[in-house]
Design a protein around this nucleic acid. Structure first.
Length: 108
DNA sequence: ATGGTGACGTCGG
DNA sequence: GCCGACGCCACCA
């Protein structure tokens, strides 16, 4: 089914529950630790064009909205997360551990 | 087939 | 504790 790495990333990102977030490294590790988190970010680049893929729920390992600049507007990502109940200050997710969603842990 | 790119992550000094 | 550099692997031209 995994025609491409992109497709796999889409599936995982689409599984992220509302109000939760995950990191590029977590997805990369879930797909295979042999892969690099960079590829996940690259996949997100194409994923964010798909409204079905909540790319705004994917942040870096620090909980910082590094990819917000890639959205239609730099405030879109933060706004979407805040709408889901995620508190963000200075592009940094507060209580990151509380909203963190690890696919390898939830999907197991 | 090759080279360059990319929204990260980890290690070392 | 903070900052810099490298590595990683798939997609596109």
């Amino acid at each position: 089914m995994s025609a491409t790495f992109f497709q796999d990333v889409y599936e995982v990102v689409k599984l992220i529950p509302k109000g939760r977030v995950t990191s590029y490294g977590a997805i990369a590790h879930y797909l295979g630790s042999k892969l690099s988190a960079r590829m996940v970010g690259w996949a997100m680049n194409a994923a964010h064009t798909l409204k079905e893929v909540p790319a705004h729920r994917v942040v870096n390992r620090k909980g910082v909205l590094t990819g917000k600049h890639h959205f239609d507007t730099p405030t879109t990502m933060q706004h979407l997360l805040e709408e889901e109940g995620v508190t963000i200050v200075d592009d940094q997710i507060q209580c990151f551990e509380d909203v963190f969603w690890d696919p390898a842990q939830e999907l197991l």
